[in-house]
Computed example of a mutant assay.
Amino acid sequence: MVGKDRKFGLRGFSVTVSAVVLGIGLTVAAPAAMAQDVLVLAAASTKNAVEKLAEQFKAKTGAAVTSSFAASSALAKQIENGAPADIFISADLDWMDYLQKRDLIKTDSRVNLLGNELVVVVPKGSPLKPDLSKGGKLADQLGDGRLATGDPSNVPVGKYAKAALESLGQWTAVEPKLARADSVRAALVLVSRGEVPLGIVYRTDAAVDPGVEVAATFPPDSYPAITYPAALVASSKSPAAVALLDYMKSPDGMAVWKEFGFVPAPKAP
Rank of each mutant, 00 (worst) to 15 (best):
T107W: 08
I105A: 04
A33T: 07
P84V: 07
G62S: 00
A42G: 05
E51H: 14
G62T: 02
S45N: 11
D108P: 02
T46D: 06
G62A: 04
L128Y: 00
V120R: 01
N116H: 13
R110T: 13
A33G: 07
L104C: 10
Q36F: 06
K47I: 11
A83D: 09
L41R: 02
P84N: 10
K52S: 13
K52T: 13
P31L: 00
K134Y: 14
Y98H: 08
T61K: 05
P130G: 11
S126R: 04
Q100N: 15
G125F: 04
N112Y: 15
V119Q: 01
A32D: 10
E55H: 11
A91F: 04
T107C: 09
V50K: 02
P84W: 07
K52R: 14
N116F: 10
A42F: 02
A59F: 11
A85R: 05
W95E: 15
A43C: 12
S126T: 09
I79C: 06
S126L: 10
K77Q: 15
K106C: 11
K58P: 06
I79T: 01
A83G: 08
S90N: 06
P123G: 09
L39P: 04
S133F: 12
S68K: 00
A83Y: 09
A70D: 08
A44Q: 00
G125S: 12
E51W: 11
S109K: 05
S72F: 04
K106R: 14
D92I: 00
Q78P: 01
N48F: 10
Q36Y: 06
G115W: 14
F69Y: 08
A32Q: 08
A54H: 00
S90Q: 04
P31T: 00
S109P: 07
K58M: 11
F88A: 08
G82S: 06
L93K: 09
S68C: 13
L75G: 05
M34Y: 10
D92E: 13
D131M: 11
T107R: 14
S133P: 09
L114M: 09
T61H: 09
A71F: 00
A91M: 03
A64H: 09
E51K: 03
L118E: 07
P123C: 11
A59E: 14
G115K: 12
S72W: 00
W95H: 10
A71K: 02
K134I: 12
L41F: 10
D108K: 13
T66G: 15
I87V: 13
K77N: 15
D97A: 12
T61C: 12
P127E: 09
D94S: 15
K124C: 13
D131V: 11
A59S: 10
N48K: 14
V38M: 00
A63L: 08
K60Q: 15
A42D: 00
V120K: 05
D97L: 08
L75Y: 04
A42L: 02
F69S: 06
V122E: 01
L99A: 07
Q78A: 15
A76L: 02
S67T: 15
K58L: 13
F57V: 01
A54S: 07
